[in-house]
Design a protein around this nucleic acid. Sequence first.
DNA 1: GTTGAGCGTT
Length: 262
Amino acid sequence: MRGRSYTPSPPRGGYGRRGRSPPRGGRYGRGDAPTSLLVRNLRHDCRPEDLRRPFGQFGPIKDVYLPRDYYTGDPRGFGFVQYVDPADAAEAKYQMDGQIMQGRELTVVFAEENRKKPTEMRARERGGRGRVYDRRRSPPRSPRYSQSPPPRHGGSRSRNRDYYSPPKSRYSRSISPREKRYSRERSLSRTPLQERSPAYDGPPRNHSGSPVRERSPYGSRSRSQSPGHGQSPVRARSRSRSRSPYSPEYTRKPGRAGSPSQ
DNA sequence: GTTGAGCGTT
């Protein structure tokens, strides 16, 4: 409040990390310099590019990622910038820490933990640590998502591309009850006994049980969408799924017996 | 070859 825009929260010999010891002495002590920076206090409408540009001045950036809430899809206000060279990361941290971006003072620190994989996140939810939503009863899905889940993974993702999938409200394809039933019938017809995962209703998924696959927003591969046909990904999936991956005949060694002809 | 549901979000 002195009007002095000095470091609001000076690390003072290192972030306490909630009373925890400084950056794990074992993670990177000497040879393993951190290359990932955690940028805090980002605007919620900040995009990876917005970070890339200013941060790219210090060196080649390997990756930029802005995590967001899985359920609500809202940005969490921080992001990661990973450099190729740790020296660049250090420089960037030093230079960018405290910089004003879009009217907000950035806090740049070294990322401590390694990336968390989806599986880990899931495990974490179970543990009851962190933001665990009672999705069993009332998932706090944001109004943005009318009903479709955010699982958008799948598709060509470049390692060097900024990852940010703007919530698209296009997943929901409101299938007519009739169509739905039809679909189910087909399903039953093909697979009388559907083994569904019990006791695990992972993230919000499609009712068909198949994670909505979204292609890259850029790579709109020709999806063979025949006009006139009610393109229903469910149908396609169903068909695909119905095919038993293990065919007794196909399991045979594709050598000599490859000839279907007797 | 890896992971996009990444820790520090208010």
